[in-house]
């Protein structure tokens, strides 16, 4: 079983995608399973690092927080663009944030969360210094951003991955 499905999450995702694209019929279920077996076996030929998730139950909480933040910052950034940056008083800038998270998948997810949220963009991660450079669209207080990223996202990701 584990030889047929070396990456169960990937296989389940592929079957689900196949069914959503082609309609939920038994024939497409068989075809989707076949595709996911081929993809899983060829994926294992690449020997990617196997991600380890420690706390599945925290993922819904993370998704909910991220969706809420994306809505909120969408409104904030749209208002800033329309008001011409509080009539020229908006200041943007770079923030360096030291991270304790080291898991590559966790870092990738943190980068996606931060960049997908309007108003913050992930610039560069320095693996030797374990620091990330962010660009913030509306920078009022640097330490508040450090506390926000570390407290709101990184602590949850640390619980999930490490």
């Amino acid at each position: 079983m584990s030889r047929l499905f070396p990456y169960p999450v990937l296989a389940a995702g592929l079957v689900l995608m196949w069914l959503v694209l082609n309609g939920f019929t038994p024939g497409h279920l068989v075809l989707g399973v076949a595709v996911s077996i081929v993809a899983g076996v060829s994926m294992s030929a690449l020997h990617p690092a196997k991600p380890r998730l420690r706390r599945w139950d925290r993922i819904p909480q993370l998704v909910a927080i991220v969706l809420y933040d994306i809505v909120r910052s969408n409104i904030a950034v749209a208002a800033l663009i329309l008001s011409n940056g509080r009539h020229g008083r908006r200041r943007s800038g770079f923030v360096e944030i030291p991270l304790t998270l080291r898991d590559p998948l966790g870092l990738a997810i943190l980068a996606i969360i931060i960049t997908a949220t309007p108003g913050t963009a992930w610039m560069q991660y320095d693996a030797r210094r374990e620091e990330v450079l962010l660009h913030v669209f509306d920078l009022v207080d640097e330490s508040a951003w450090v506390a926000l990223i570390k407290g709101r996202y990184e602590s949850l990701l640390l619980e999930i991955f490490e």
Partner: peptide, 21 residues
Amino acid sequence: GLMRLSSFYDRIHAPTLGSSW
């Protein structure tokens, strides 16, 4: 925002509006 903002690092935030909500 992409058209009006003045620096590249400001402009990189603008398309995320379209790509998220």
